[in-house]
Amino acid sequence: MLLFLIRRLADGLLTMAALLTLTFFVMRLAPGGPFSSNRKISPTIRANVEAAYNLDQPLVAQYLRYVRGVLQFDFGPSFRYRDYTVADILLNGLPFSLTIGLWAALVATVTGVTLGILGALKRNSLLDYSTGTIAVIGIAIPIFVLAPLMQVYFAVMLRWFPVGGWNDGWRSLVLPVVALALPNIAYISRLTRNSMIETMRENYVRTARAKGIGRGRVIRDHALTGAILPVVAYLGPATAAIITGSIVIETIFALPGIGRHFVDAALNRDYPLVMGITILYGFVLITFNIGADILRGWLDPRVRHD
């Protein structure tokens, strides 16, 4: 188990280093700096501005300086928001993004697993079919189509929740969280249903039943662990889906989170901010991937010894 842990952590560090390097060079090679689109400025001012942002140094020196900064959670100043550092912007946005992201993950997992298990235990029932239909809808209709429709219906027509913003306490959380959770509910319920059906056919479940253990207890103590494995494996991709989704959701619901900054930064060519957010996202994703792997290794010995 220890060896497995060390190997996973080493992999993670390597990927993180690759991410850092690739992001840096992609950003530096991208055409059009933040100062090139504005009106003409004199060469002296230009040189001064570039010196202030260290853009006049050789690329490798810039890279080393950047890596040293990142290790101290210093991503440099933002090109766009003059008085803020990238770290400030990240720390300001993080609470909003984390709040909706974690709620969405919780709602998606609990609802998805519950629906999946119920669907598997009562196959071909009305519940199973309606869950299946919801899953197809959730997988096929993109979140940026669903969210505006939810806004029109629940916010504009019914006036249950605010259209956007962060001023109504829990009520302003409901629509973004549901919109963000929906595609994941769809995936997780499908995954759980299929793996639950498969697990119920396993020999060890049959053995447990043959020993005379009640159906409820077999499901709780034996089948569930096996059935939950694919869902744990999905934790990594689910994190990616929630990060991706939050970019759209924060834009649609006008929430001041990191995802919204990312889109603005990409459009404004605010390179330090884009890099900072990419690295933060990459870090979160890699951490969750490792976490999912460790959890899987703990639940299933076959993974550890692979």
């Binding site: 990927t15 992609v26 991208a30 055409p31 990060i243 991706t244 990419t278 990459g282």
Partner: peptide, 20 residues
């Protein structure tokens, strides 16, 4: 494996910026 570790949409956005 390394490319897989990138958040997919972020990679697309970075590359779309790189290609102008």
């Amino acid at each position: 494996e390394i490319l897989y570790a990138f958040p997919y949409v972020i990679l697309v956005i970075l590359l779309a910026m790189l290609f102008g």
